[in-house]
Design a protein around this nucleic acid. Structure first.
Lengths: 128, 128
DNA sequence: CAGGATCCGCTTGGATACTG
DNA sequence: CAGTATCCAAGCGGATCCTG
């Protein structure tokens, strides 16, 4: 990160931004985490994750694949079977993601508590 | 996370999702990181981050404030001065975010390398 | 300087239907 | 089953103008 020296921008153009933008995606981290135990099929991921459409899943998988984080393996069978798995590079992201989930287990209640005493016009999906 | 037992969805409805969605935002993590050294003014954040519009910054700040991660302090002066700082709760998120930046420093090149040999129709802003 | 209000283009993302 | 293509509504996000 090159730290932030007084006066200069420290956040733009640093590699950390790439990691942030990689996960600044509704589904990227969730999909990666879903693959953390081993190869999973397309349909399995749909059920596993819950709430994601096939379109978004495919789109997310393609993106992660392009970034070298996952690998796609299509079997020439009928009916077709396609499995996705983490690459060694992708596997290194599991720890940071896991830290986030750990954080949530510890501080999740505090966040929900804060949301209760919030104006509610900033947070789209609370009660509705 | 309650692990994932065979058969049931493991990702929906777990507190980890909240943390993911909290940071699954183009600017949330970046703003938090920008505040990690102490109170910063609105205008300073604009220059510090680089690329964010005032509208998005304000919006992001409001959201983080609603989640109890940052605190807003407006001084009754002329010209107006408003500073933002992490709450103790928000400060606990710095470590996980820092892990991501560390990951990027280590694996950033590998990701960029993978992007080079990618179809390029999946990754919006590479060369253009 | 901080930030609300408005307008508007563009992207996001779901639903559906179709291919292999 | 896995994936694409098309349509379309909703929201994001920038530019601009205005207030305190």
């Amino acid at each position: 990160m090159s730290g932030f020296g007084p006066g200069g921008p420290f956040l733009a153009d640093c590699p950390g931004r790439m990691a942030i933008e990689l996960l600044a995606d509704k589904w990227a981290a969730v999909v990666l985490y879903g693959l953390s135990r081993g190869p999973v099929r397309h349909g399995e991921l749909i059920e596993l994750i819950g709430g994601i459409s096939r379109k978004m899943l495919t789109q997310t998988l393609r993106r992660l694949e392009a970034h070298g984080l996952i690998r796609r393996h299509a079997y020439a069978e009928a009916p077709p079977r396609v499995e996705y798995e983490l690459t060694p590079l992708g596997a290194t992201l599991i720890d940071p993601i896991h830290m986030l989930t750990e954080w949530a287990r510890t501080n999740g209640d505090a966040v929900l508590d804060a949301l209760d005493s919030a104006p509610a016009d900033v947070v789209p999906s609370r009660d509705g």
